[in-house]
């Protein structure tokens, strides 16, 4: 079944199609929600609220992005709404002035250590890092979803990378 057919059936409130759409995206969305919130319960709530919103508002989907990108944008907002908090961004004066690319070295990075380091980032920087580096969003899209400027998105990403590098280096020592 093509994505368009699946969407059409979901618009007709076909429960089997709704389940199929959920199954296609549940793992990716749950994982993204966990990486943003750092909490499995919050990720579960965000996932549930996201798909409820998707099924109730699917008529508003205009096909300007993939359905996956549309669901992701809802999920990111829900992840913060559910926690009733706005992501905390690192203040400008705390951001590194050095804008050179981060040198990750030649050794392979341990994924387990990286996963833990990501979760220890401040919320705002973590959200920007996850959306751009693991989900492939552009700064413009991240700015729109998170309600920040593109400049903030870029500076938070730069901060996140430098902070991650520091944590990984410290762990190796």
């Amino acid at each position: 079944m093509t994505e368009q057919e699946l969407i059409q059936r979901c618009l007709n409130h076909d429960r089997a199609a709704q389940r199929l759409l959920y199954d296609r995206y549940k793992s990716a969305m749950y994982t993204l929600a966990y990486r943003i919130t750092g909490d499995f319960d919050e990720a579960n709530t965000a996932l549930q609220d996201t798909f409820l919103s998707v099924f109730r508002n699917l008529a508003q989907y205009r096909g300007e992005s993939t359905i996956g990108a549309w669901i992701k944008s809802i999920l990111v907002r829900k992840a913060y709404q559910n926690a009733q908090k706005q992501p905390h961004y690192v203040l400008m004066e705390q951001l590194p002035t050095d804008t050179n690319p981060v040198d990750w070295g030649n050794d392979a990075i341990d994924a387990d250590h990286l996963g833990k380091a990501i979760l220890s980032l401040p919320e705002g920087a973590r959200a920007v890092f996850v959306l751009i580096e693991t989900e492939g969003f552009a700064h413009r899209e991240v700015a729109e979803i998170l309600g920040i400027s593109e400049g903030t998105s870029k500076s938070q990403l730069n901060y996140a990378k430098k902070r991650l590098r520091e944590m990984l280096v410290r762990r190796q020592e």
Binding site: K26, A28, T31, F40, A111, T134
Partner: peptide
């Protein structure tokens, strides 16, 4: 390393 991060199931 990011490509090796775990995927979780709800």
């Amino acid at each position: 390393a990011l490509s090796k991060l775990p995927i979780y199931e709800p």
